[in-house]
Simulated assay, not measured.
Amino acid sequence: AARFASEDIEGDVLQNWVELPDGRRVAGNRIIRGEAAHTIGAELTARVAARGLDVSRMETGGDPMYTATPDPANSDTLFAAALQLLADPDLTPADFVTARYLLFQAPRTKKGSDAVNRTFTVAAGAALLGHHAPALPADIDLRCYVLGQHTATRLTHDQEPTR
């Protein structure tokens, strides 16, 4: 909600624009609220019910907000840019957090991508940066989904490498 207010978004959809290291801008995930979110909730409930599953415990009331992944072509572009950063022999902690952000903006699967990204980035950070690897914030997925790129990729005190 704070992002909608700070960016003067009047509609129901906030598009995250991701700046790649080469300067291109790519549409990342979207944050959806209001009527658009209620529509998504109803569609999700209908899909689950159509599979014969119990929807009575699904929470779709109130004032929901959802995140929606980018289209497959943009997701592929974001993923490729992340891997290019990680392949750079001169990788820095700042480049690493950018790559991590790009990976969360480019999920490879519908289910489990958060866990895969967490595990992969911890292992990649340890292998590529050793003790210079930024710590993984407990809420990294939420930060990457709802904060803007500049905020989500800022190295904060809780992410500073251990020495």
Rank of each mutant, 00 (worst) to 15 (best):
A5C: 08
A124E: 13
P89F: 04
T69C: 08
Q149I: 00
E10L: 13
I40F: 03
R33N: 03
A135Q: 14
L83W: 14
L91K: 13
L85P: 08
L86G: 06
T39M: 09
L44P: 03
G61S: 02
V122E: 13
L147V: 00
R51T: 15
L53Q: 11
T109Q: 04
L155R: 04
L14Q: 13
I32F: 00
R143S: 07
G52S: 11
V48E: 00
T45I: 04
V116C: 12
A133W: 08
H150K: 06
V26R: 08
S6F: 12
G23C: 07
H38T: 08
L147G: 03
T92F: 10
T45R: 09
F104D: 01
T119V: 05
G28E: 11
I9V: 14
Q84E: 15
D114Q: 09
H132G: 07
T92W: 00
P21S: 02
A135K: 12
A126L: 07
S75N: 02
D8F: 08
R57M: 03
A106K: 03
D22K: 07
A123L: 09
A138K: 12
A106V: 05
A81D: 01
G41Q: 07
G112C: 01
G112D: 06
I140N: 12
T60E: 05
H131A: 11
L102F: 02
M58V: 02
G125H: 01
G11S: 10
A127G: 08
R108P: 00
W17Y: 10
G41L: 08
S56G: 14
P21G: 08
L53I: 11
A37N: 11
V13K: 15
V55R: 00
A123E: 11
V146A: 03
N117P: 06
L83K: 10
Y101A: 02
G148K: 01
R3Y: 07
D141V: 02
D8M: 04
G61R: 01
K110S: 15
I32G: 01
L86K: 09
T156H: 11
G125K: 06
A36V: 06
A49M: 06
